[in-house]
Write a protein that binds this DNA or RNA. Structure first.
Lengths: 206, 206, 206, 206
DNA sequence: GATGAATGAGGATTCATTCAT
DNA sequence: GATGAATGAATCCTCATTCAT
């Protein structure tokens, strides 16, 4: 389930956290690897012991984010039955949760793919496609069974994901809105977007 | 309508275009001001004659983008009547059009605000708030008159804008999808998101 | 008496004043010709209309200082008779006065000769030698007539000049010490340095 | 005795020497840090490894000069007894020696303080005040015990120091005058300036 | 007579990275 | 395994100066 990711020693974690902050604040190109090492309270040479280059550090960061997102998503799906609406809600919950967490609150994934090597880029695109595929599949299911009436499932999917991603732009953990609220509101929003119409007789259990 | 923006000599335009490309490709921090000058076929010192710093160049870029977006939006609104649905469609059309154009195809606005000075940041935030306000107002109108049934107008607005913004991430001008198609699809999507229910008797003119 | 110096239009004077301040504050190498023009409220191109280069501006500055110093010195000498003590006092008065004035309060002459071209350097060295020669001559007179007992007239001369020059390092025009006081104290000091012993019988007129 | 100054590795010393020469020749503002590195046969990045900035290099230079001067002065004083005349001679000897040495032959201290940060400026001013204070104290002693008759001890002190400092302007190590000669002549000069009158009966030992 | 635009060279500094220890 | 020292290349930017207008 998790990829063959870099080891997870404390040193690794401290560096990833520091890098995430620096990259988020200054962008990949604007971040200094010296500052990252300093923020992680690690010597510069030690950083290079863990990660061979700035690029590799970025890759590890994005890859680890994917690990976490995958894990959350699969856990959420695991708690549901077969109902596409229920499953879509689970996926939205996972994405909202991710975007409210430390790894999703930056939007590195949306812009800093360009800074990866072609191989790294391809690897993450693949993982991203898997994640997108989970939405695609669920929506296709709903459309197939007639409970999602949207005429443009691709647009619907992209809109749902974009809306959830955008949470990181405006939501703040110290504000009055709880992640729990967001999950409910964005689940509803997602069902609206796919134009969910529950079957008349067989009531859907909440 | 347009702000008191920097002058628009050919030199300015060439530099803004070059900077947009470089910033989009490498990010603000990763872009080299030398490369920008070279790409614009302008001497490095000439660049500094036009723009006092890299930061100022970024600001001019974002500010000019705002000019264009404002202009498109107001033109679109000018062609409509009072109906909130019609006006929302106009705003979506403007945003989609902007995102399909050269100035909106990068997503500098979403990430590189961090690279501005506090003053520049504030100035653009204000302009952005105006643009957002146009959506907010139209949606509030629709909700007030009962034709937009969404219980969460703020989420609806953010979702519509995020969905349109995301177009720049996947849509390519040389693909098979025309902007015209996108405008229609995203107008529908927006009306879906605000849960538009036209009045029964008074038919809305298209 | 005055050299074939650059013309003295208001523009010239404003530029010289601005340059003197900038050079004094930042040194020749550290001063920006742009800042000088700005401080003088003159366009950059106008500056180049008056002075062909930064170096020429420095030269004009030092040369004009020499003009002023020569003038003060000769005026002071003109008010004296033949007595070497009296004449030395006049030269000290002139130098103190110069060092308390705007042109002498910086110490450009002591360090920025290095920034001149060889020709400029030589020209000013010559003028400086003339000024030094006035001291030398007076002291030689006093030694020759037995009223200056110093065994080292060269050291005495250098010490007197160095002491007067140093005034610019610590004296401030807005302090409590008046130039008049300095003149008296440094005249006495100079006579002490040359070991002045007035003749017993023929009283020296003040 | 020496301050907690920067380390004294060969690299440091080579850089300080190179910087001293460059600063002396071109002034702080006119000196190029590239040229300094080159003159010291050190890579530019290595220079920055040793000294964080051009300014810091200047500070280290001036500070180290102070170290040396303090050391010479205290050694010279250590060889004397209590007699103010003897002690003044020791201080003059130290200053002359310093001004004839490599660290005193430039006059950076007199002009390039302006190029320091306020903090650096203050630190060196303090050290300079200590050095000046040694003269002040000795002269005050002599005045107090009646063997220095000068009515203006402050002017006398400044004149002595200025005269010694000026040595660096005209004396050349390859000329015919030996430092030994200068020390004797300037000691005499200093005693002349303070108007030294030895006590009649108790002869002062040389 | 005066200027705004333009420039090539060079400014100080920081970069990601390597390597001997 | 871990690090301080060292580096070449590149960074953004400013310099004194010129020239067409």
């Amino acid at each position: 389930m998790t990829s063959t990711a870099p080891l997870r020693t404390p040193g690794h974690q401290a560096l990833l956290a520091a890098a995430r902050e620096e990259f988020a604040e200054r962008g990949y190109g604007g971040a200094s690897i010296r500052d990252i090492a300093q923020r992680a309270a690690v010597s510069l040479a030690a950083l290079y012991h863990y990660y061979g280059s700035k690029q590799e550090l970025l890759y590890a960061l994005l890859d680890e984010g994917m690990d976490v997102y995958d894990q959350i998503s699969l856990q959420a799906l695991g708690r549901t039955g077969d109902d596409p609406a229920e499953r879509l809600e689970a996926l939205v919950e996972a994405l909202v949760r991710f975007r409210c967490g430390p790894r999703g609150s930056s939007q590195l994934e949306l812009t800093e793919f360009r800074s990866l090597s072609p191989e790294q880029h391809a690897a993450l695109r693949t993982r991203q496609a898997v994640a997108t595929g989970r939405f695609r599949e669920v929506i296709a299911d709903g459309v197939g069974s007639g409970i999602f009436r949207t005429p443009e499932p691709d647009d619907a999917r992209r809109a749902i994901i974009a809306a959830c991603n955008a949470i990181a732009q405006w939501w703040r953990p110290d504000g009055s809105i709880q992640p729990h609220d967001l999950i409910e509101r964005y689940s509803d929003l997602a069902l609206t977007i796919v134009e969910y119409r529950p079957r008349a007789l067989r009531r859907r259990a909440r």
